[in-house]
Amino acid sequence: MTSFDVDGLSVAVPCSSFHEIRKSGYEDKTQKKVSVRQEIRDGLKELKREIKNWTEEVKEGYTFDPITGMPLPGEVDKQWCFDQNTNFDDWVVTSDSDHNEGYSTSSLSISPTGKGLFSGNLSTQIIKDGKVKKAGYCNFKSIRPQKSFKRDSFHDWSGYTHLVMRVRGDGRSYMITLGTAGYFDVNWNDQFHFILYTRGGPHWQISKIPFSKFYMTSKGRIQDAQEPVPQNRITSFGITAGDKNNGPFRLEIDYIGLELDPSHTETSAYEQYKVPYFYAGY
Rank of each mutant, 00 (worst) to 15 (best):
S3C: 05
S3Y: 04
F4G: 13
D5I: 15
V11M: 07
V11P: 11
V11Q: 04
A12L: 15
H19F: 08
E20D: 07
R22T: 14
S24H: 06
Y26K: 07
K33W: 06
S35Q: 02
R41G: 03
G43Y: 01
L47V: 10
E50A: 02
K52D: 14
W54I: 11
W54L: 15
E56T: 12
E56V: 10
E56Y: 11
V58M: 08
V58E: 12
I67F: 09
P71L: 05
L72N: 05
L72H: 10
G74M: 02
V76C: 06
Q79W: 06
W80A: 15
W80I: 15
C81R: 13
C81T: 13
F82A: 02
D83Q: 01
D83Y: 04
N85M: 01
N85P: 06
N87L: 08
F88K: 00
W91C: 13
V93C: 12
T94G: 03
D98A: 06
T105N: 04
S107L: 00
S107N: 02
I110N: 10
S111H: 12
S111F: 09
P112A: 15
T113R: 09
G116V: 00
L117V: 08
F118K: 01
S119N: 10
G120L: 12
N121K: 14
L122Q: 12
T124P: 01
T124C: 14
Q125L: 05
Q125K: 05
I126Y: 05
I126H: 03
K128Y: 08
G130E: 05
K131E: 08
V132L: 03
K133S: 04
K133T: 02
K134E: 14
Y137H: 06
N139M: 11
F140T: 14
F140V: 06
K141F: 07
R144C: 09
Q146E: 15
Q146H: 15
F149D: 05
K150R: 14
R151V: 08
D152A: 10
D152G: 06
F154Y: 11
Y160G: 03
Y160W: 11
Y160I: 02
T161M: 01
L163F: 04
L163Q: 04
R172A: 12
Y174Q: 08
Y174A: 12
L178C: 10
T180G: 15
T180C: 15
N187E: 10
N189T: 04
D190V: 09
H193M: 10
H193N: 07
F194S: 14
F194L: 00
F194P: 02
Q205D: 15
Q205R: 05
S212Y: 09
F214T: 09
M216Q: 06
S218T: 09
Q223V: 09
D224Y: 09
E227R: 11
V229S: 12
P230W: 05
Q231N: 15
I234F: 01
T235F: 00
T235H: 10
G238E: 00
T240M: 07
D243Q: 01
D243N: 00
K244T: 13
N245W: 04
P248R: 00
F249D: 04
R250W: 07
R250D: 12
E252G: 10
I253M: 14
D254Q: 02
D254A: 07
I256L: 04
L258E: 06
L258F: 09
E259I: 07
L260H: 04
S263Q: 10
A269T: 12
Y270F: 12
E271G: 06
V275N: 02
